[in-house]
Design a protein around this nucleic acid. Structure first.
Lengths: 143, 143
DNA sequence: CTACGGCTTCAAGTGAACGTGAAGTCAAGA
DNA sequence: TCTTGACTTCACGTTCACTTGAAGCCGTAG
């Protein structure tokens, strides 16, 4: 199983061939060797794809993963780079968890509230405009 | 303050005028009355926009909010419709919270692990391919 | 008169993570 | 030989919630 085509790699990794090609174009995988124009892989790419999967599962974007593996072939990445990025991402994930918790609380409150018309519901009134600070008007950024 | 232009409404709601126009086009706001081609609003629209804000905060998409307010003017929505959609959304939000929790655990584990090369890390090996069930091959869906 | 600010419309752009379709190459099998 | 299946590149489509740009109307202030 030393030489694999893109279809075999995709099958082993649980991906589509198009995704593997996309990963290469995005710099997440190094350019594969070609035989008659077709990509050939050895098993190391499966380890790399496992790292990519883990990174995706913990919330890294494709661009972040590109930065993570930049300058390395399929054999290994830089541990200190991972550590640093993982710490940053952990903060993001905790923020996400807090947001989810807030959504959950609001939903439960709205279900418990049961007011006949939401237009007069206290929950709605509470979320009218979230505290505009003083100073010249600056419209909100995309969120 | 009975008659407001789109700019005034936007300022009161903490939105951009373009967003208010977008909401109308998306069916989230009913078509506004026009005076000389320009939109005119009364205060009821602010209550509607507060409902929209709350709905967005608890995770409803624009399309879901359109369904939520479908058939109602700026005065009120259907409570039972809200209840049903809120219950569904609550399940989604709980799933999101679980995913965030899983991301957090994985990140913390990877930071605690500290193995020199992630390619041989147990965490990576664990996330190789998540349990493909038997049967004819069917490529994974987007997710 | 001219500039200005705010309004109108429609169309297209943004970013993320791929998916999809066209058009063509290539080797193996009936 | 013809077909099948897997592969190639390239470019455009998809979803979401908007934003931005172009081109133009309208009232007012200088």
């Amino acid at each position: 199983m030393g030489e694999m085509t893109i279809g075999e790699v995709a099958a082993h990794a649980g991906l589509r061939a198009s995704t593997v090609r996309y990963y290469e174009a995005a710099g997440v995988l190094p350019p594969a060797a070609r035989v008659g124009g077709q990509r050939r892989y050895d098993e190391a790419v499966l380890a790399r794809l496992a790292v990519v999967r883990l990174a995706r599962e913990v919330g890294f974007s494709i661009a972040e993963i590109r930065d993570l593996v930049d300058g390395f072939d399929t054999t290994g990445i830089a541990p200190e780079r991972w550590q640093e990025m993982a710490r940053r991402k952990l903060a993001e994930v905790e923020a996400l968890a807090q947001r989810a918790e807030r959504m959950r609380l609001l939903l439960e409150a709205s279900l418990a509230c049961g007011c006949l018309t939401l237009d007069t519901c206290q929950l709605v009134l509470d979320s009218r405009v979230p505290a505009q600070p003083a100073g010249p008007a600056s419209p909100p950024q995309a969120g």
